[in-house]
């Protein structure tokens, strides 16, 4: 429940924040720079007088939007490859599996950083880096699921009756992997949020002046010892809430879909 509430709060802020707080996140007010949180500026102002709450809202939209995109792309690419490799086998399985092993040899964050450096800092390269790092996770999970499901009696029966590979996937295998995909997706969502923030933190993510939580933390770091704590604190809180809530939801989903856990279908 805690995870869902935290997640809902952030999603609400991302979706409706601009309606409730219609302040331009890029509007500069030089003489109003570095003001502490107040009713006028609930999260204070930054070094050029921009409203931190307005930037927080847009940062949430950016982070969540990119994380959703990464999760969907990773699911589609990694999941499809995993399904096909498990079902087709042979040289296709060997080639794709070894490729995924090679990608897995790199720590995910380092891989994402390498892609971002290679393509140049920015939202697209950061997202591509995270997608590339996420694909092998889906691939290995789905491939092992398919290999397990293929040996089940009802799948073999369908195959013996002449069901095509597409039919096998659509009617007999994919529905059985839905829970696995959901659980993995929530974990990847959390991973995406943290990795995007990390890329932004080291200057490889979304570039200023577009607000992004990781970049906002970096900008606030210079003021960590000069008293302007709000610059880094609030985006850090946002990352914390989103990542923790996504992880809590992933844990709960796993419990729900695990027949041995006895958990009921409620969050």
């Amino acid at each position: 429940m805690v995870g869902v509430v935290m997640f809902a709060i952030i999603i609400f802020i991302a979706v409706f924040g601009r309606l409730l707080w219609p302040v331009d996140p890029l509007r500069v007010d030089i003489l109003g720079s570095l003001l502490p949180p107040s009713l006028e500026h609930p999260m204070g102002t930054d070094d050029v007088g921009r409203d931190v709450f307005a930037r927080f809202i847009q940062g949430a939209q950016v982070s969540i939007g990119v994380a959703i995109g990464v999760t969907i792309a990773g699911t589609l690419i990694g999941g499809t490859l995993g399904l096909l490799a498990g079902l087709v086998g042979g040289w296709f399985d060997t080639i794709v599996s070894r490729t995924m092993d090679a990608i897995l040899a790199f720590p995910p964050l380092i891989l994402a950083m390498a892609v971002a450096i290679g393509l140049g800092p920015g939202i697209v390269s950061a997202a591509l880096g995270v997608i590339l790092a996420a694909i092998p996770w889906y691939f290995r999970l789905l491939r092992s699921e398919v290999l397990r499901l293929r040996t089940l009696m009802y799948v073999e029966s369908a195959q013996a009756l002449g069901a095509s590979s597409f039919r096998l996937i659509r009617l007999h295998i994919l529905p059985q992997t839905t829970s696995t995909i959901f659980i993995q997706a929530s974990s990847v969502f959390s991973f995406s949020i943290l990795t995007l923030a990390a890329l932004g933190f080291v200057g490889l993510g979304i570039q200023p002046p577009t607000p992004e939580w990781g970049t906002m933390i970096t900008e606030g770091l210079a003021y960590a010892l000069t008293g302007q704590w709000w610059l880094g604190f609030f985006p850090g809180l946002g990352i914390f809430m989103l990542a923790v809530s996504a992880n809590l939801i992933a844990d709960r989903l796993r419990d729900i879909y695990d027949p041995k856990s006895g958990a009921r279908l409620s969050l």
């Binding site: 500069v28 030089i30 070094d47 050029v48 921009r50 200057g203």
Partner: peptide
Amino acid sequence: QEGDATQQQLATILQST
């Protein structure tokens, strides 16, 4: 230049103005 906070501030101010 990446990492130059003053240039970033100045560019942001000009962008807005």
